[in-house]
Design a protein around this nucleic acid. Structure first.
Lengths: 172, 172
DNA sequence: CCGAATTGTTTTAAGCCTAAAATGTTTTCC
DNA sequence: GGAAAACATTTTAGGCTTAAAACAATTCGG
């Protein structure tokens, strides 16, 4: 094919994009690697929590949210923070109330709202688990230098922003 | 306290580590951010797969593994690659065989082993989904420059190695 | 003030996931 | 050859998770 024709095609970037779809293999590999890292670490933490404290990761995560909120949280708050569905939280809270780790009461001012808090037992157990949990995380990331950590934090913040924008584009 | 005493204490790094536990807040925040990113993207992909193709993410992931293995894989292979339990794969495969996407047969040479493959239908559907999936991922990571992507790949590779070493230390 | 939209939670139905025990098969090694 | 170890898969029991529908309470607008 003559050079002139090639040149014409190259200038029509609109058409070119349609005809030769872009290659996103790098982003795909990045996503898979991100997923692998998370799955690996999550599985490790899950196993250690079960072995050492006979507790599940979701229960631990929920208690972690409540530990940061001494005045309690509503179920919706928890659901948003943990990025899980409402119904999921309902069941999780049910079991933790049952085991005496959580206290649930209906709000005085808005009878739709359930406010949950850690009980004394719940807080004590969480603190004990959290201290050990922190050392596990440190160990899992042990090979990273402080600079690596900072750089990862920065890039993941950028990734989070990018993903949030993309999600918002689809669901405005 | 006199300077001399301070100096003595500082030199005894063994003792110091025990008396003042190290601060791993940065690693903890890094882990939470990593988890947030993954959860965010995973949720987005899950939702799009359901809306566009009425398929679940685990099914898609399983088909993705098989697409890379034209000669099929054993259930154990799949289980290791996907980093999920054996029993999980059994159920997943059951449903995909039922829906006509997978073909399962007992190995001729080893009657313990089940070999699974994509059917023609399964492969066609997967390819269709995968093409679109790739554009979603590209969009979710759109704000990252090629340099960002390379740097993240490098740091996540290091993270993966670190976590694997840590896991191996616990379970040799 | 009252109907309609909104908000917070629970329920439902289905599927995903795990750890551990059970089952069936092959290999190892005396 | 045969017991024992190793391996691949399935089963079991329990918990997690989601989307969507249902329910309950509050707020908003006319």
């Amino acid at each position: 094919m003559p050079a002139v024709s090639d040149c014409t095609n190259m200038l029509d970037s609109e058409t070119k994009a349609v005809e030769t779809p872009e290659d996103h293999a790098e982003e795909l590999r990045l996503w898979l690697r991100l997923l692998t890292c998370t799955t690996l670490i999550e599985g490790e933490v899950r196993g250690r929590l079960r072995q050492r404290f006979d507790v599940t990761l979701p229960r631990f995560d929920l208690m972690a949210q409540l530990d940061k909120a001494p005045d309690g949280m509503t179920l919706s708050d928890v659901s948003k923070r943990m990025m899980v569905s409402n119904g999921n939280v309902t069941g999780l809270v049910e079991r933790l109330v049952e085991s005496g780790h959580l206290d649930r009461r209906t709000s005085e001012t808005d009878r739709r709202v359930q406010v949950i808090r850690l009980t004394k037992l719940g807080r004590a157990e969480f603190r004990r688990m959290a201290a050990e949990h922190e050392t596990w995380i440190a160990d899992l990331f042990a090979d990273l230098t402080p600079k690596d950590v900072r750089e990862l934090m920065r890039l993941l913040a950028k990734t989070k922003g990018s993903a949030q924008k993309s999600a918002a584009r689809r669901r405005p």
